Simulated scan of single mutants.
Amino acid sequence: MPIDLHPGKRICQVVKLKPEFYDEYVKVHAAVWPSVLELLSKYHIEDYSIFYLEQYNLLIATMKYLGDDYEADCAKMVEEDANLKWWKMTDEMQESLVAGSLGSADSKGWWLNVPEVFRHDH
């Protein structure tokens, strides 16, 4: 059996940022609530970054998931009060690219998942 040299799942997601919220979005992410950061770790998410592509008002998130069941962990995250409060605040600043999504707690998702087409690890 081959050895998996690259455990985990890399994830990339996009969502639109309402341009009038740029400054506020940057401000709240400069001081993310400790309870939200703890939940990322609890549910096996690390190496999480969000980038901003200004000409398209796109937020691009990348992260690594190191758990055993991504879907189950995502379902548990939706039940966490700190996440629900954080998402309520940040969802107001965003527009989802997921058709019919009502927010980050929606089972459809809020951030659009982007498929990986190339990977090089060294």
Rank of each mutant, 00 (worst) to 15 (best):
L84D: 07
C74E: 12
L17H: 02
S35A: 15
K85F: 15
C74I: 08
S107Q: 09
Y48A: 07
E116D: 10
N113C: 11
Y65V: 04
H29Y: 13
Q55Y: 09
A75L: 07
A30N: 15
D106C: 00
A61Y: 02
K64Q: 11
L40R: 12
E71M: 07
V28E: 04
N113Q: 11
D4F: 07
D4V: 08
M77V: 06
L39T: 10
G109R: 00
E92A: 12
D91I: 06
D81V: 09
L66F: 07
S96H: 01
S101K: 00
M63H: 03
I60E: 05
M77G: 02
E20N: 09
V32C: 11
G67Q: 01
R10T: 10
I45C: 13
C74P: 04
P34W: 06
W87H: 01
H122E: 12
F51S: 14
Y22E: 10
M1C: 14
S41F: 06
Y65K: 01
I3Y: 15
A105E: 04
S104V: 03
P2Q: 15
V36T: 02
T62R: 07
S104C: 08
I60A: 03
M63K: 04
K88P: 02
A99F: 03
V15A: 01
Y22W: 10
D91F: 02
E20I: 06
L53H: 14
M77A: 09
L17V: 03
A30T: 10
V114N: 03
G100T: 02
V114P: 01
R10V: 09
D91H: 03
D4Y: 09
E71C: 05
L102M: 08
W33M: 09
H44F: 03
D81R: 11
I45A: 10
D68H: 11
V114S: 03
W111Q: 01
P7Q: 12
S35M: 13
P115Q: 07
G67P: 01
